[in-house]
Design a protein around this nucleic acid. Structure first.
Length: 468
RNA sequence: GGCGGGGUAGCCAAGUGGUAAGGCACGGCUCUGCAAAAGCUGCAUCGUCGGUUCGAUUCCGACCCUCGCCUCCA
């Protein structure tokens, strides 16, 4: 069964067929490195990771590109305020971003281009648009893209959503220096240097200045993935104007269809409210880790809801994520113990988990149904384990199926926590006390272990220590 | 004002024209010295009001509530 995805271009779920199978070019709008990414940003990046992993699970060879936006108004302002250089300012946030991405179990994108490394491509693209008569230099020295000229060539502006310029409200975010545009719909490709930019400017045939926001993504994706590629994703807020403008610039410059499938991830609420610093519900990954949660717990929670639905992220939910993951860990751990290092899965093992999971995830990434399949498998596997109804080889088959599934989910613990000698010694002492039926002493030790962060569990086959 | 999402148990969240997955939380039972883990088990008629239908949570209409975008916010 093929993979189906919702394409914003057609506003419908479509069979996914790449331009040149088995290769898939995928571009994801990355972070703007002016601060630590927040949990809402992370939802989008974890979503992108899920798409990539699902494609790989489906047998495609994915080339995943995620840009780093390091030229932007807020960045320039903070560079000026902090008296550093652009690179000194953005470097640490970029590093932090990549660390967090790893904590969240995201596979590293194959290419991570920075806007500042693509000035030549950006300038060349703008020049091409000017040569084609689709861009103009205004009185303020900036270069703008002309929507009217673009539409005059028979091109369609408004592919991702219905636009009605008559009914639109001029936003409050229109920069005061953009009065020189011929039409409000036009957008900046190159912004002329202003004193507030400080040292952040580049030379170009259009004068000193810096690129607009949208153009960097077009320049980088066209360079790295070619003039037409398969997938482009980002947060739903980017549909307009960012992605719409990317399409206009790219198709205006190349005359070819830009992207075949556009995927957009919905935003999230935190504790039922729109995330905002004043409400105290604004979290970075680091904030959550400081509260004792791990990256994989955050990943799990972000992956519990369908990507096109607004998701309500709560701290209660995060606590629940911890418990739910422990349930999976427990089951997998038992399977590992039973399977041992050498058991191999018998050929033709039929593990329903695989088919159920595949059907769910292939249906426009129905992750909730996919988790349903996982937990159903956990329950049934636990039952068999409790009844001693699994052979080591069967356990290995289950593990193999799980490993494949986890290639998409990315939440499994790779190794069991190592138990320190002192903890083992205490556990031994407890076993002795228990054997002597000194339950008072044995419970004391159990509490000590708990205080040290270790849970001890008794079972017919002996004790088991688990890191809390 | 324009465009587009949502409203399903205490919380999170799938789904279907024929009486509603899964996770967390909570209660009971089994196992256990006690726990934990695991198993069994209990827990919703799907925002409101109409309509279509043999039958609607699922289709249509109205209404209420809520969220997002509308020019550099994931």
């Amino acid at each position: 069964m093929g993979l189906k995805l919702y394409n914003t271009l057609s506003r419908s779920i479509q069979e996914f067929t790449p331009l040149t199978p088995p290769h898939v070019g995928m571009y994801c709008c990355g972070p703007t490195v002016y601060d630590f990414a927040h949990i809402g940003n992370w939802r989008t990046f974890v979503f992108a990771d899920l798409v990539r992993r699902t494609l790989e699970f489906s047998g495609y060879a994915v080339r995943h590109v995620m840009n780093i936006t390091d030229i932007e108004d807020k960045i320039i302002r903070r560079v000026r305020e902090s008296g550093t250089t652009l690179r000194e300012f953005t470097g640490p946030f970029e590093t932090a971003f990549l660390e967090d991405l790893k904590s969240l179990g995201c596979r590293e994108p194959h290419v991570q281009p920075r806007a500042t490394d693509y000035l030549a491509e950006i300038i060349a693209l703008i020049q091409k648009l000017m040569d084609r008569g689709l861009a103009y230099r205004a009185a303020d020295g900036s270069v703008y893209f002309s929507i009217a000229k673009y539409q005059g060539c028979g091109c369609h502006y408004g592919q991702l959503l219905k636009l009605n310029f008559e009914e639109m409200r001029p936003g409050e975010r229109v920069a005061a220096d953009e009065y020189a545009k011929e039409s409000v719909a036009d957008f900046a490709l190159w912004k002329a240097r202003v004193p507030e930019d400080g040292a952040v400017f580049w030379q170009s045939p259009f004068g000193e200045g810096r690129p607009g926001w949208h153009i960097e993504c077009s320049a980088m994706s066209l360079k790295v993935l070619g003039e037409s590629f398969d997938l482009h994703l980002g947060g739903e807020d980017l549909k307009f104007p960012h992605h719409e403008d990317e399409i206009a610039q790219s198709e205006g410059a190349t005359g070819k269809p830009f992207v075949k499938y556009w995927l957009h991830g919905a935003h999230l609420l935190v504790e039922g409210r729109k995330m905002s610093k004043s409400l105290g519900n604004f979290f970075t990954l680091r904030d959550l880790m400081a509260r004792g949660f791990t990256g994989r717990e955050v990943r799990y929670l972000l992956l519990t809801a369908h990507y096109r639905e607004t998701f309500n992220f709560t701290l209660d939910g995060l606590a629940g994520a911890k418990t739910a993951l422990a349930r999976i860990d427990e089951c997998v751990s038992k399977l590992r113990a039973l399977s041992g290092p050498s058991a191999t899965a018998p050929a033709g093992s039929d593990i329903p988990l695989l088919a159920n999971f595949t059907a769910a995830i292939s249906d426009d990434l129905n992750i909730s149904a996919a988790w349903g399949a996982v937990f159903e498998w956990v329950r049934e596997t636990n039952k068999k384990l409790a009844d001693n109804a699994l052979s080591p080889a069967e356990a290995a088959a289950h593990l193999a199926a799980w490993t494949k599934i986890d290639g998409v989910l990315g939440v499994s613990l790779k190794t069991e926590a190592e138990i320190p000698e002192s903890i083992l010694a205490l556990a031994g002492a407890r076993t002795e006390a228990k054997k002597a039926r000194d339950f008072k002493r044995s419970d004391e030790i159990r509490n000590e272990l708990k205080a040290l962060g270790w849970m001890i569990e008794d079972s017919p086959s002996g004790i088991k220590l688990k890191k809390i």
